[in-house]
Design a binder for these strands. Structure first.
Lengths: 213, 213
DNA sequence: GTCATCATGTAAGCCGTTACATGATTGC
DNA sequence: GCAATCATGTAACGGCTTACATGATGAC
């Protein structure tokens, strides 16, 4: 889970642990609570397995800079800029360890995204990183998930009523979640099948959970 | 998490581990994967802490029978019935250990339901068991959760567009989840405030996720 | 006879959390 | 001077998963 997300982020740009953590909070969704106590050991593991390489940030190494539009957290970048442009060219500020993904890491990333086991909480993250998959793998991934969700849905048709009101409401909520994930998946699958209309603004696509049957 | 759910189930009726597991699958929602390897140790812990008591099922103990309408999994009950009514009065079938909640357990259950820390995945379960709370505690619980969800919602207003389509869709999905939980919570809170209209069928209440702004 | 279901457990290992330890830099 | 932010780690602990071990009963 963590390793998946880390590899996903490092695929876009080289990063050091501290910055990584901030971006993880975004990728892993609300409620995510990645702590340094899990992040750093995870990075260590990744390094030992040869999935990432470390550069001890003597010089900013140019290529690592930042591919993404640099939105969001400005703190680190600004600080780096000041340090480089004002007082000292390279050095100071406690030697950041910058991590870069390796070829083995890229391969492993694809494997992890595609890995159906341990499915539940990981899936949103896997979709977020699905761009790294081939078109066919991605489609297959979505369809596997759809099958799994459908499976869960008709395992739980039993009770319907009786029981205590809070039990019932909780259950209804969870069923709705399943159904809304289904419609989301259908949208994903549909937009895989016919490549999206050129550009411009297409109306009503951002919100999923419609009204199920 | 597990202990919360176990105490919740034992509050309704005495059960042995195997049967407990089946009901847990329901209570904990789809995607739940409680294994015996976690269930039995958890029961052991609960016993050591004096939150449950064990009766080694020499005699079925009458009061344990089953308070609930006996829907769902019939296997165990049927087997027990056959064993009792046909061949042997009590005995045979590998001495089941039947667990019963204690007063301390009931107190702990209320504490656990109300406990806001470690909030995310537990909440649906806590709502399912919210019947064991006092009216005021329950309402407070729902409102605390609503505040938390609102908090998460406006932490993530940053990006909106740019980034890769799969990142965007994953994010949108998770935001929708937050919003749909919000409307669900509003329903819960509302129905706490004005005690529900007598009986009969009230239309359109089962499905939550409407169309947000 | 053999398989599925009922029934209870133990052991190894992973992954994650909290809490602790350290230390530089910047802003007030 | 002091606090916040940046930055990296270690140690103890907990809980859950997988896999293993055991054994009775009933259905086909």
């Amino acid at each position: 889970m963590l390793e998946l997300a880390v590899l996903g982020l490092l695929h876009d740009s080289d990063l050091h642990g501290y910055e990584l953590k901030k971006r993880l909070a975004d990728l892993l969704g609300p409620w995510s609570t990645v702590s340094f106590g899990s992040l750093y050991p995870a990075l260590g593991r990744l390094e030992r397995h040869g999935l990432v390489a470390v550069m001890t940030s003597a010089e900013p190494s140019e290529k690592s800079a930042d591919v993404s539009p640099m939105s969001g957290s400005l703190g680190a970048e600004l600080a780096a800029f000041r340090a480089r442009g004002r007082t000292r060219a390279a050095g100071g500020r406690r030697a950041r360890k910058v991590y870069a993904i390796t070829d083995a890491g890229r391969a492993e990333l694809r494997t992890l995204i595609d890995d159906t086991s341990g499915d539940d909480r990981t899936f949103a993250v896997r979709v977020a990183l699905a761009g790294h998959l081939g078109d066919d793998e991605r489609l297959a991934l979505f369809r596997r998930r759809k099958a799994a969700v459908l499976g869960r849905l008709d395992q739980r048709s039993a009770d319907e009523d009786a029981i205590d009101p809070y039990r019932r409401r909780s259950r209804a909520f969870q069923d709705d979640r399943l159904r809304s994930e289904l419609t989301w998946l259908d949208e994903l699958i549909a937009s895989e099948l016919h490549p999206q209309p050129p550009a411009g603004d297409d109306p009503a696509l951002s919100t999923s959970g419609g009204s199920p049957s």
